[in-house]
Simulated assay, not measured.
Amino acid sequence: MSASPVLVATDLDRTMIYSKNAIGGDPTGTDLTSAQHYVCVEYYDGGPLSHMSTETIDQLRALSAATPVIPTTTRTIAQFQRIDLPGAPWKYAITSNGGNILVDGKPDLRWRSEIDRSTRTAGMELAHVHSELETRIDVSWVSSMRVADELFPYLVVDLSTIPADFEADWSAWCTSRGWNVSRQGRKIYTMPDAVSKSRALAEVRARLVDAGELTPDATVLSAGDGALDADMLEYADFAIRPRHGELEELNWQRPTVTVTEGSGIAASAEIVRWFSAHVAAMTVGTPQESEQLSK
């Protein structure tokens, strides 16, 4: 098999897959009486949790057969493995916001060791950050506090009762200690600076080039909706984000980043069509044609 000239990386939640409440693009809730046909791709405790449009399923399956596609998510390994994501089996997947790389479904211990070393070197260790966070929260507005894959803590909060200054104050404390804070819907993540999707994606790209599966000058495409995706969108040669989510709320724009016309689950099919058009231009056409598609 010849080396591919394109590498695709895509976020999952609210980019490719959608909860019942997010299908319409509105995180506060919507019904499912949409013209979009969708199927459940993740069950939790016996109930349906995440959905994909049938168009996205068909197109993602075809795309992954044509070029390397890297699922890239802030989900833990176990949460990622719950998803019946079309295009599997995946040679590589990035979980835990880049803290883990899965190779043929198994965590790469060498990469995780490097991440743990970098986190210790760059700033405060998880245990200290976790302890400090515990002193700043209250059950009146935090429904749960968890640690993802022994890498970073995150809160599930009530947005109607969270103190107005919590995020800003907590972010200020973290910034000088090698950590950062991001909110995605009701979840507030506290992330070590050493952990990022772009860093893990660069590692996967290098491995694919070394293995002869990707050309050294391959074009990188990416998609995502949240602030934790921003570094990955900037790392890519061309990227796309849906017209919803945290980046939309921030009006986050970059010259190389396209914004979908649609929002909600309809945006996912638009994103995969965008990916496919670029892959076709790079594989059959020229790099100039691919660049023209992004304008």
Rank of each mutant, 00 (worst) to 15 (best):
N100T: 13
I101H: 02
V103K: 11
V103I: 15
V103W: 05
D104P: 11
G105N: 12
G105F: 08
R110D: 13
R110C: 08
R112C: 04
R112Y: 05
S113V: 01
S113C: 05
D116E: 15
S118P: 00
T119D: 09
R120C: 12
R120G: 15
T121Y: 03
T121Q: 14
A122F: 10
G123K: 00
G123C: 02
E125L: 10
L126V: 08
A127R: 13
H128P: 01
V129E: 01
H130M: 07
E132I: 05
L133N: 03
L133P: 01
L133Q: 04
D138K: 03
V139Q: 07
W141Y: 04
V142L: 07
S143P: 04
M145S: 12
M145H: 14
M145Y: 14
R146F: 12
D149C: 11
D149H: 05
E150Q: 06
L151I: 15
L151M: 15
F152E: 09
Y154V: 05
L155C: 11
L155E: 06
V156S: 09
V157Y: 04
S160G: 00
A164M: 05
D165H: 00
E167S: 01
W170C: 07
W170F: 06
S171W: 00
S171D: 05
W173T: 06
C174N: 04
T175C: 09
S176R: 08
G178T: 10
S182P: 09
S182F: 15
Q184H: 12
Q184F: 11
R186N: 14
I188A: 10
Y189C: 10
Y189P: 04
T190V: 15
M191K: 09
